[in-house]
């Protein structure tokens, strides 16, 4: 196995592997690898728009989270500003009460489209015109 590994790495086209003469058997797994905190990332495309949730990054603190968020979410797309917030700090209503958002009762009184005036004005204008003609 060892000889095979050495042979493999010396014939690899990968310059990083050519530089180091090591073989796979030297590697040891960490039993408890670093577990970083998770931060949710909010991205604002242009000034004036909302910050929109775009995903999460792992980082040891908020400062590093911003560095990673910039690499991850502002590398390709236009970006005016980024926020990060620790995932544990998010409070949510959750989906188990999803049905409470459903509009079951008539609620047009709180929507702009619930107030239609033009036909009344038209009817009024017509009646005034009719009177003046007669």
């Amino acid at each position: 196995m060892e000889t095979a590994d050495r042979h493999l790495l010396s014939t690899s086209v990968d310059p990083r592997l050519q530089r180091v003469q090591r073989h796979a058997t030297e590697f040891h797994l960490l039993e408890q690898p670093e577990e970083w905190q998770t931060f949710e990332v909010f991205h604002q495309r242009r000034r004036g728009e909302h910050h929109v949730h775009v995903g999460s990054v792992h980082a040891p603190d908020a400062e590093m989270a911003l560095v990673f968020a910039k690499e991850q979410f502002a590398r390709r797309q236009q970006c005016a500003s980024l926020w990060v917030v620790a995932s544990a700090h998010i409070h949510s209503l959750g989906y188990q009460n999803e049905d409470m958002f459903a509009t079951t009762t008539e609620k047009t009184y709180r929507e702009a489209s619930g107030y239609r005036l033009r036909h009344k004005i038209q009817a009024y204008k017509q009646s005034v015109q009719h009177e003046s003609n007669s």
Binding site: E34, W36, Q37, T38, H53, S56, P60, M64, S87
Partner: peptide, 20 residues
């Protein structure tokens, strides 16, 4: 990369599952 991950590690902070 291990040494740098350990160097910037904050031992007080724990892994949390991402929210969405």
């Amino acid at each position: 990369g291990r040494w740098i991950r350990q160097a910037i590690m904050n031992p007080q902070q724990k892994f949390t599952i991402p929210f969405a």
